[in-house]
Each structure stands twice: as C-alpha cells, then as structure tokens.
C-alpha cells in the first residue's frame, strides 16, 4: 500500500516545483527547444503514471498502453478536422473512447494472466495501430499534421509553447494527486490486495476482476490524456503513437522509476527521455547505451531509480 510519507511528499513537491520553474530557466538560457522536450516529457509522465497504476499497483503488465496515446492523439486530429477545437472536448472524447476501448479489451484480457495478459494487450494495441494505418482519410501510415492546436475557451492559447507546457504540467500534477488518492483508497487496497494474492481476496469476499477492470479503465483514460497532450505538442498525429515500441517505452519508464511508485513513474519518464536525448547526441547507436543503463538500474535496484534514494527497505 502506498504511504504518503513526508519524504515522498517532499520529493513530489521538489520534482513538480522544478518542472514549474523550468520555463523561466529555458527563457533565461534562450533555449526554446528545451521546453518542447519538457512538454513531451510531461505527456509521457502522464502515460507512465497511468501505466504504473495498473502495472505497479494492480500487477497487470499492459504491453499495449500506447493504444491510449493513439486514441488521445487521434481525438485531437479527428475532432479538429470536424471543426471542434476545444481542448476540453478533445479530452472528453479521448477519455470516452479510451474508456470503451479499455472496458472491452480489458474485460477480455483480464481473463488471462501473466505472459498471456501481456500478449493480448499487445495484440489489441496492434489492432488499433493497424486500424489507424488503414485510415487513409487521416494520412494512413504517414499520419496527419494538425491545422492548429486545441483551443481553450475558443482562444488559441496553446499555440504558445509555454502555455502548453503549463497545461501539461497542471494535468500531470492533478492526475498524480488523483492516482495517489486512488492507491490509498478502499479501492486501492482491494486492487493492491488482488496483486498480492488474488485467491486470498476471493476468500475474504472480493471479486478481483471487477476492481482490476475498473483500474484498467481508469488507467486507459489517464493515458489518453497524455495522447491529447502529445498530439498538441507535435501538432502532428500518426499511428506511430500506438506502435508497440511505444508501449515498450512506457514499460521501460515505469521500470526505470520503480514499479509501484507513482512519483517514480514521473521521474522514470523524465530520465528515460532525457537520456534518450542526451545519448542521441553522443552516438547514433544510443539504444545500446540506453539498454546498458537500464540493465544496470534493474540489476542494482529492483525499485528502479527511486530505490537508490531509499534506505528503509525491509
């Protein structure tokens, strides 16, 4: 169970405060590219947070969470072309479609366990991927460039990169607090219990399936918001958002930060993307170095990077 220890509350405050002052630093440095990367980091942090909720707390290893990124991204593209540009509408549509998709695929996937669950979530995500690849009205494989970013109250506020950044940050903080609340609630206890020992939970009168499915749907909805942010950041949408590589990256981020540590998921997304940017500067073959670092982190700390900052493991 999650305990919001003072240490963790402090770590969260520091991390989010650092994100909050980042635009001022980039402005002082005159580096406008950094804010673009940072917005991407925030969007992926939302997705990693969503994945960690079911992976870390529910014990469900979804290898298809990129599907929800795609759903969110295409919500922006499709509604945008239809003339609906409001950010709220985009998010609502993304959440609604993600909820339905998660409900159907989750209800089927949750009949399996372990490696089969991983494979079936992957299969569903790939179905989504190929659906959008064949959607020629929206560019098929090539994707489609957005005419404009989402609007807020009819105003094109998000055209400003800093405004988009702070929107993403506000969403991340809100969803982080929501996820923390969920893990500490009655629902969270049942979800965690079902991961620890599903038979025991049944023996005391819970049906793990209902709780796991609900968590799966919540997680999918959260991840779709990340997709909305990604589409806005890039002003471009393509099926590559749903690619299984992307799902793998999300799992890597969660592992990086420490499975079952929501703040770790945020940190994991940050570090994974920064490493990617930085290593890519060093060599074309950066994935080799990235893989090496991941292996070292997993070898030396089962709790990911957050494990290095913790001394109270029992």
């Amino acid at each position: 169970m999650t305990r919001l220890t003072p240490t963790r509350a402090w770590a969260a405050t520091i991390l989010f405060a650092a994100f909050a002052i980042l635009p001022m630093i980039t402005q002082a440095l005159g580096d406008s590219y950094l804010i673009v990367i940072a917005t991407r980091i925030l969007a992926y942090a939302i997705a990693a947070l969503a994945l960690d909720l079911i992976l870390g707390y529910g014990g469900m290893v979804s290898f298809g969470h990129a599907a929800y990124l795609g759903i969110g991204a295409y919500a922006v593209a499709i509604l945008g072309r239809a003339g609906i540009t409001d950010l709220g509408a985009h998010m609502l549509a993304a959440i609604a479609v993600a909820a339905v998709f998660a409900l159907i695929t989750g209800a089927i996937s949750l009949r399996t366990r372990g490696i089969y669950f991983i494979m079936i979530t992957l299969a569903f995500a790939q179905m989504g991927y190929f659906f959008f690849v064949s959607l020629s009205a929206y560019g098929g494989d090539d994707g489609v460039t957005l005419n404009a970013r989402s609007t807020v109250f009819g105003q094109p506020l998000l055209e400003n990169n800093t405004a988009l950044y702070y929107t993403a940050l506000a969403l991340l903080i809100g969803l982080y607090l929501l996820a923390v609340a969920i893990t500490r609630s009655r629902f969270g206890r049942v979800l965690t219990g079902a991961r620890e020992n599903p038979l025991r939970m049944q023996a005391i009168g819970f049906s793990p399936f209902r709780y796991q499915l609900t968590a799966y749907v919540i997680s999918g909805c959260m991840a779709s918001i990340a997709g909305v942010m990604l589409a806005n950041q890039a002003s471009y949408v393509s099926p590559s958002y749903m690619d299984w590589h992307r799902s793998g990256e999300l799992v890597v981020m969660v592992v990086f930060g420490g499975i079952g540590n929501l703040l770790g998921a945020v940190a994991g997304a940050t570090i994974a993307l920064l490493l990617e940017e930085w290593l890519a500067l060093l060599t074309r073959h950066w994935p080799i170095l990235f893989g090496l670092i991941l292996v070292l982190v997993v070898l030396y700390s089962r709790d990911g990077l957050s494990g290095f900052f913790r001394s109270d493991r029992s």
């Binding site: 629902f187 969270g188 219990g193 620890e196």
Partner: peptide, 25 residues
C-alpha cells in the same frame, strides 16, 4: 497478503463486509 501490514490484512477482510469498496478518494 504479504506486502500488507498485519493490520491491513485483517482490515481488508473487514472492508469486504462493510460498505462498497468502489471508493476512490
């Protein structure tokens, strides 16, 4: 439930009997 405390193990069983566990906040 090995990761739970001893109290949480028992409290989870009490929870199963008392009220809905679809409470999120």
């Amino acid at each position: 439930l090995p990761g739970f405390t001893v109290l949480e193990n028992v409290a989870a069983a009490v929870q199963a009997r008392r009220g809905s566990s679809f409470r999120f906040f």
